[in-house]
Amino acid sequence: MHQTISATRRVALTTVLAAVALGAGGCGTDTTDTSASGGSGTPSSAALVLDDGWVKSVDAPRMGAPSPAGGMSMPMSAMFGTLRNPTRSDITVTGGSSPVAGTVQLHETVKTASGAMQMQEKKGGFVVPAGGTFVLQPGGNHVMLMELTAALTNGSTVPVTLTTSAGPVTFTVPVRAFSGGNETYNPSPSSS
């Protein structure tokens, strides 16, 4: 489960980190917790909140198109944003699901021994500290939506459920066009 991303992405990653430090003050108007808060729906009682969440769009023509590497296309996307934990206990995100994706995985981006940046499944999940945040961003940690079953159109929304130590949390996440994050995904590098 490794993906290599180009050097330009590494530059972008640095930019994103700086940006997040400056501009993470937005409020979570786009996404709401619907299941883990016991139905109250208010941010203070939600177990986990997604601020400024979005999912990269995937147009219909790209569904089933041959991949640049010549292998089978694996239509996929990713969810980004800032997970916020307003509770007094750490929350661990261990997985997820979505009606538009056959598989949902938690990914991290790591530097390999050769210096290249690679994406891989995050062992142990994402830990959102009590009263803290966990940033999902292109080139960094993110939630992969794989084996898409439908196009994800710009300006629509998709439901994404995260499995957490505090129970499942479902977000309605806006879909947005994004020209970055175009790394190809080969589940088995040796097969190409």
Partner: peptide, 9 residues
């Protein structure tokens, strides 16, 4: 910045 803005500065 908009949601996808990598340069919200």
């Amino acid at each position: 910045g908009p949601l996808t803005d990598l340069e919200p500065e």
